Amino acid sequence: MPAVASIGAISGRDTAVTAEGLDHSRRRHACPPPGSPERARTATGATREAILTAAERLFAEHGMYAASDRQVSEAAGQGNNAAVGYHFGTKADLVRAVARRHAERIEALRERAIVAAGDSRDVRDWVDCLVRPVTEHLAALGSPTWYARFCAQVMTDPVLHEIMLEESMASPALRQAVEGLNRNLPELPPEVRAERGQMVRLLILHTCAERERTLAEGAPTPRATWAEAADGLADAVLGLWLAPVSPPR
């Protein structure tokens, strides 16, 4: 939620600004001088952000290899076609950087969901810990977004998808959510549990990617908001985990 200015900050006693104070404020907020290390760091950070945004969008819309480093550089407004390699190295490094760009916010949302779940024995609460941090993050990004489609594209690549799995499992909150889920699931044969875990990953990933694509195209969606979409997705995931197991043939 955006920060809200306190009443004291806009009260009469705080509105008087002397000429000396104004001059000091201007100096304090002035841009770093050209050629300074601070100016260089600011420019480098802006370039990296532009490249990450361009790569996420192009990879989401066209696939991991249909978009070249040159196209990413051009989309990021960089005249140097080698900018991607200079700032990020390989495509694998770029994919990892895009994933980490979103990880902190999703981690914070998942930590909050885990606190809310507490010691719950309800499987639905732990399913929510898996689903809702993703949908809430996508909702907060506004529209259009590309991150869900980016993840879906990466997960189709036999090499790059390992990076996404590594980044995901580096999340302490995700590990806690999975542990909470596993503690409360009914007894399932190991092979069924593994199979359904894979199904759940695909269901969450591709449902979010498809909704993101539909929103970007301005087409109607089955559910009006990401929060409502999360309800339907969590219902489906819960049903998948609790579905009966067919006897061996």
Rank of each mutant, 00 (worst) to 15 (best):
T44E: 10
A46W: 01
A46V: 07
T47P: 01
A50W: 02
A50C: 06
L52I: 06
L52M: 06
T53I: 09
A55H: 09
A55K: 11
E56C: 15
E56I: 10
R57I: 03
R57P: 04
R57K: 14
F59L: 14
A60V: 06
A60G: 11
A60P: 07
E61S: 11
H62R: 15
H62D: 15
M64Y: 03
Y65R: 15
Y65H: 15
A66T: 14
S68K: 11
D69L: 05
R70E: 14
Q71D: 14
Q71G: 10
V72K: 13
S73E: 03
E74T: 14
E74P: 00
E74W: 12
A75H: 08
A76R: 13
Q78P: 05
N80H: 12
N80R: 13
N80M: 06
N81E: 13
A82S: 13
V84C: 03
H87I: 00
F88H: 04
F88D: 03
G89W: 05
T90S: 15
K91E: 00
K91H: 06
K91N: 01
A92Q: 14
D93K: 02
L94A: 05
L94W: 04
R96Y: 02
A97S: 13
V98F: 01
V98M: 02
A99T: 06
A99R: 08
R100M: 12
R100P: 00
R101I: 00
R101L: 09
H102A: 11
H102V: 03
H102C: 05
A103W: 01
A103Q: 10
E104S: 12
R105D: 12
I106D: 03
I106C: 13
A108G: 07
A108Y: 00
L109V: 08
L109E: 10
L109S: 03
L109G: 07
R110F: 00
R110S: 02
R112T: 13
A113K: 13
I114P: 07
I114C: 10
V115F: 03
A116F: 04
A117R: 01
G118R: 05
D119P: 03
S120H: 00
S120A: 02
R121C: 12
R121G: 14
R121K: 15
R121M: 12
R121F: 07
D122P: 03
V123K: 01
V123W: 00
V123F: 01
V127E: 02
V127L: 04
V127M: 02
C129R: 10
C129G: 06
C129M: 08
L130E: 07
R132C: 09
P133M: 10
P133Q: 11
T135S: 15
E136P: 01
E136L: 10
H137G: 05
H137S: 08
L138E: 09
L138V: 14
L138A: 11
